[in-house]
Every structure is written in structure tokens, then in C-alpha cells.
Simulated assay, not measured.
Amino acid sequence: MTWGLQNSLAEAFEQIDYALDQGINFIDTAEMYPVPPNAETSGETERFIGEWIRANPGKRDDLVIATKIAGVGLPWIRNASPISGSTIKEAVEGSLQRLNTDCIDLYQLHWPNRISPHFAKHWPGMVPHTQVDRAQQEAEMLDILGGLAECIKAGKIRHCGLSDDTPWGIGEYVRLSEKYDLPRMVSIQNEFNLIHAKDSPYLLESCVLNDVAYLPWSPLAGGVLSGKYRNGQVPKGSRWSIGQRNGLFRDTPMTHEAIEAYATVAERHGLSLTQMALAWVYQTEGVTSTIIGATSLSQLKEDIEAYHLQLSQEVLADINIVFRKYPVPF
């Protein structure tokens, strides 16, 4: 999601090549990337991936490419319209062209049309549940599933999934797909990390028991859990040095207190904070695959190495002490 703004085409190629050499085959992107989104760069990340495929045509089948349709709110993408069956068909065509591929392996809804408790909207009173028109939501979901069905039938996408949704959203899509014999959502990607773990246990239970893959995004909480922003630092070129669409909502006094506490645990056990935080996500029951957003190749290497780290019960116990003290720091 940084390719096209924080990363050059050459750097994107370097990261893809390295990831493939390490056995990674899942690449997640979106039509609105890079972030923060704007009209000038919209779609560039997909284009970079498409250029890599153009340069490496024999390796396309080695990849599982996932992308996402933007939800309501971005005026330069379909006039900020909500997701529907017709906009899905339009968006799929654009992504296929930019990705330089005939078929998208996993096509996801970037966020639901209704307000969902994501991007720091997880506090009580922030999501108007009682104002949601359930019948309207069902009609929209059926229309969306219909559009996805047409794309699957045409061979343009293989599977479909969700992003930034809830247990109700998962359950409703599963119910409607079974009732009307429509495509089934196979995955969901939500933020999940040591300072934002609200999906455990309820959404994770929905995923496991509904056979829906859980794909956490931002396992380092937008880079906060790397420790790069400790002591008031904002490194040049980092995420916090660039204005964000939803603001720096993780930048709170309690977040920084939590980071210091986790850093102490990591130092006590001779671990890097980054790898400890990633390994905790990787080892969480129900996690299927983790979406990392490394900007540099050195960051990517450190992130991948964390896959081979098995946290001991002693480390997990110390992490749990901090977690209980800072369960919702932002």
C-alpha cells in the first residue's frame, strides 16, 4: 500500500522478488492505494504489481493476488459511491487492467457501506447500530453478491472476501450466500495487533466456525509497534510524517505508555519489539495469514524473520501482563 508514494517501482520489484524467494505468495493491495489516498496516485500500487507481472509473466501463477474495491467516501473513485453489484463490475475491470492479469484471486470489499467500528471508531456510541436499516443492508448485500457472482462466472475473480467488517457482517453474508446459492465470503481482513485486538475472541470465533480466513492487517499498528515513534521521534519518510486520511488516531499518551511497556518485555527476553509484536499476531489462534506493510527491504526482511520466532510461555505471560493493563490504548 506504499508503492507509488513512499516506494519506487524498482523498490516494489525488489520487495516482490525477495518475498517470493522466502516462500511468500500472497500479495494484498487495493484500488485506492497507495496511502494516504489521493486522486493523483490512486491505483499506482496495483500498477506497480501489474508491471512486475508484465516483467515476469511466467511467475503470475506463483502468486495469490488480492485487491479491494473502495467503499463510499472517496470522491475521485466513482464519485464516492457505495459498493454495489454494478460498481464491483466496474472496479474489477479497472483492477484487472492495472494489475495486468486476467483474474483476481481474492476480491474484497474494502469497508462496508454501513458505518463499522474500525479506524478508531470502536468506542461505545461511535457506531449508530440502531439507525441501520437491516432490510436495506440485506438488499445491498444481495446486490453485491450478485455482482461478485457475475464476475466469478466470467472468470474475472476466483474468490471474494471482506475487510473492516464485523461478526454480524460475516454471518449475514454467509447466511445470504447459502440461502440464495451465491458466492461465499472466504476471508476477512481487519486491523489486529497488540494495541488493537478487539477482534479476539468474538470475530475470530465467527471466522473459525464459519470457515472464513482471518487476515490481520497492520500487525504493527501502522508501525507504532516497531518502536520507531518512541520518545517523540517521527522518522523522515515514515507513516506519521505523512498526513493520513483518518488522522494519527493511534498517537495517544496511552499508546506510547503501552509501547514502552512492550519494549521492556522485548528487551528483557532479548527480542526486537517488531518481531515480538509480529510473532504474537502470527501465533494467535485463528489467524490465517498476516498482511505486513513494510516500506523498506530491511523492514521486510525483519518482518519475515519473525515468522520463524516461537514465543515462549514466559514471553507470552509477560506480554499478557502489559496487554491487560493497556487493552484499548487508542
Rank of each mutant, 00 (worst) to 15 (best):
L142P: 04
E257M: 08
Y214G: 00
D211C: 07
Q233P: 00
F249N: 02
K179S: 09
S241A: 15
G247H: 03
S226H: 12
Y202K: 03
S187M: 08
L176M: 07
L248E: 12
G247R: 02
H159D: 11
S226E: 09
R239K: 12
T166L: 01
E257L: 10
G146M: 09
L215K: 08
L194F: 06
Y202M: 10
S238T: 04
S177H: 05
C151W: 01
I157V: 15
G161R: 05
R250Q: 14
K153H: 11
P219R: 07
N193W: 05
Q137D: 14
L204R: 01
Q137V: 15
Q189G: 03
S200Y: 07
W217L: 08
M141D: 03
I188G: 00
A221S: 14
N231G: 04
A197N: 03
S200M: 07
F192H: 01
E257N: 06
L162S: 07
L204D: 01
K198D: 13
A149N: 13
K153T: 14
E257R: 08
I188D: 00
Y214N: 00
G147K: 05
W168F: 09
I157L: 13
S238V: 06
I188M: 00
G227T: 08
H196A: 07
D181W: 01
Y229V: 00
E140H: 09
G171C: 03
E138H: 10
S206T: 13
G161N: 07
A139L: 12
T255K: 04
L145I: 10
K228C: 02
Q244I: 04
I144M: 13
L176Y: 03
G232N: 12
Y214D: 00
A258G: 11
Q233N: 11
L209M: 11
K236E: 15
C207N: 02
G171Y: 01
A135R: 13
D211Q: 14
E257Y: 03
D251Y: 14
S241L: 03
G222Y: 10
A154V: 05
G243Y: 09
E140W: 14
D211K: 14
V208D: 02
L162E: 08
A221N: 10
D165P: 11
V212L: 00
Y214K: 01
I195E: 04
M185H: 02
P216A: 11
L142N: 05
L176F: 02
I259P: 02
R245F: 10
D164T: 12
E205R: 12
L194D: 04
P253G: 04
G223I: 06
N190M: 04
A258I: 08
D181E: 11
E191R: 04
L209R: 10
H256I: 07
D165Q: 08
D181C: 10
H196W: 14
D251H: 15
R158P: 06
G161F: 09
P183L: 03
Y173R: 07
L194Y: 11
E138A: 07
S226R: 02
G169D: 07
A139W: 13
G155L: 11
A221M: 13
N210I: 09
G171K: 01
F249I: 02
I170D: 01
S163P: 13
Q233R: 14
D165H: 10
D181R: 15
C160F: 13
I170G: 04
G237V: 09
E172H: 08
N231E: 15
K156N: 12
I259D: 08
R250C: 11
